[in-house]
Structure formats: C-alpha cells, structure tokens
C-alpha cells in the first residue's frame, strides 16, 4: 500500500510529513518550556480568586477565559499540564524500569521463571487497565503516589513484552555467543550486551507511554479518584468545570482537554517519524 502512496502523492506527502514532524517538535518544546518556565518566571497566582472576573469568555486579556471563581484559565491550564506531565513522566519512568527489568529477567533466565512471569503478565492484561487503576487508587486513597503507582502497575506489561521479545531475538546473535564462549557470566552478558541493545526500544516505548499515562491520570482525576481536587491537574480542571458547563459555559471544559490532545498528537507524530526512520517499510501508527 505504501507503494501507491509514494507513487501518486510522493512529493506532497513527503512535504506534509516533514511539516508534521516540525510542528510536533515545536509544540512539544513550547509545551515543555511553558511548563518549566512559567511557574518560576511569571509571578501570577494561579489560585488568585477574583469574583468580579468570573466566567469571562476567551479574550485578549484571558486567552482561555476565566473559571467560575475568576481564575485565569490559561495559567491554570499551564499548571495543570505541569502536574499531569510530571505524573505522566514519573509513572512512565517507573513502568519502563519495572518492565525492562522483568522482561529482561524473564528472557535471560528462561525456563519456568519465564513462563511464570509471562503468565503473570497475561493475568494483569486481563483486567481492564483503567479498572485496575481505579481499584488500586480506591484501596490506597487518592493522592499523587497512588495515582503514579496505579498508572505504573498497568503500563509495565507492554514494556516487559517488548523487552523480552527483543532480548530473545538478540540472544541468538553471534556476538552473544562470542561473549559466552569468552567466559562472560550470565549477569555480565545481560547487563553489558543484552540491555544496551534493548534500550532504544524501551526508550521509544517510554516516550509513547507518557501521553498514555497523562490520559490515565486525567481519567482518574476526572472520576474523583486521582489527584486532590485543589491541585490543578488537567483532569481536575475538567471535573471542576462541570458546573459551569451545565450553565452553558464551554471554555473551562474545552481548553484543558485540548491541552491533553495536542501534546499527545505531537508525541505520536514524532514517534511515528522516528519509527519510520528505524524501519521505513513499516507504516507508522498512533499506538495509543
């Protein structure tokens, strides 16, 4: 199928693709810079209540409008993205480390350990992820760490599968045989020869996991099972906007959601380009 695309639309497709990659990069850099720089540099209080300014529609002064107690939504959204991104990155890192260790251990040890671990991964995958997350958070009370734990507990599975498959395919390469016949221990072969080989794959999986983890956090927060409601995460912003929405004011709901969608698409755009570069024959997909 890729052939037809290239034959008929070769030039235009290529230029839109470059454009998409560049736009994605710009958006991501802008988002990360805003999240890192706005809180220390802009001395505005995101919690500052001003009832005379409540529920103003988007304008030049308040590009995203104001919420039901007159807080500027652009500022709130930047803080929300900051918290959601932080939770997403930490959860993705934890899940990647756990997944990589488990996957590598399963593949390197083999035998019944491998079978047991992979069966366990199957069992974990049989519970819908959001439901498992809800269960963990409900039992451990909502808060930052339970949310991170509940996202990590559902996300390490795919990384473990990817890393295990990768290690198994690397293990049959000649340089591994050479290392073993050279007298390297199993631990040394795993840490020095196998793990460096799987890190690119695990890294790509981790990057793709961040939007997914942010999505998870938002869903939990929206359901009232995520971060404490005074913390302006994106999900909490949507949740607290429900009252204004039912009164007919759309902007407190619209913008936090957009801030979740746009970075997700940007990450997917970059990751797709990266994957196409690694393996040009395979067409990219969003992999959400």
């Amino acid at each position: 199928m890729a052939d037809t695309v290239w034959r008929t639309h070769g030039r235009t497709r290529r230029s839109t693709r470059t454009l998409r990659v560049r736009a994605s990069a710009v958006i991501l850099v802008a988002a990360v810079l805003a999240v890192l720089l706005v809180p220390p540099l802009v001395h505005l209080d995101q919690q500052a209540v001003d009832l005379s300014q409540k529920l103003l529609p988007p304008s030049w002064e308040h590009p995203f409008g104001t919420d039901d107690v007159g807080r500027d939504l652009l500022l709130r959204c930047v803080y929300g993205l900051r918290i959601s991104l932080l939770v997403g990155v930490v959860a993705a890192l934890v899940a990647t480390v756990v997944g990589t260790l488990v996957g590598a251990a399963a593949a390197a040890l083999g035998g019944w350990t491998d079978r047991l671990v992979m069966r366990l991964v199957d069992v974990f995958s049989s519970v819908p992820h959001l439901l498992l997350g809800i269960f963990v958070v409900a039992m451990f009370r909502p808060g930052v760490w339970p949310v991170i734990a509940s996202v990590a507990v559902t996300h390490w599975l795919s990384t473990a599968r990817i890393v295990r498959a990768e290690v198994l395919s690397l293990r049959s390469r000649p340089y591994i045989d050479a290392a073993i016949s050279g007298g390297a221990s199993r631990l040394r072969v795993t840490t020095r020869h196998l793990l460096p080989g799987v890190l690119p794959q695990a890294g790509l999986a981790a990057v793709l996991m961040v939007p997914h983890a942010m999505w998870h956090e938002s869903a939990l927060s929206f359901l009232g099972l995520g971060l404490p409601s005074h913390q302006a995460s994106l999900g909490n912003l949507v949740q607290s906007a429900r009252g204004s929405l039912l009164a007919g004011d759309w902007w407190p709901t619209l913008f936090p959601g957009l801030l979740l969608i746009v970075p997700t698409l940007a990450v997917a755009g970059l990751a797709g380009a990266w994957r196409e570069r690694l393996d040009p024959r395979r067409r990219s997909e969003l992999m959400l």
Binding site: S218, A219, V238, L245, W250, G257, L260, I261, T264, L265
Partner: peptide
C-alpha cells in the same frame, strides 16, 4: 480519527452534553 483517539471519552461526553 487520530485526534479522536487522543481525546478522552469523558471530555467528548461533556462537550456533547454542552
């Protein structure tokens, strides 16, 4: 389709209600 896939269902639901 890609945009919809990235959009959370609860957000779509709220906008649909509105």
């Amino acid at each position: 389709a890609y945009t919809l896939e990235a959009a959370p269902a609860f957000w779509l639901g709220l906008l649909a209600i509105w």
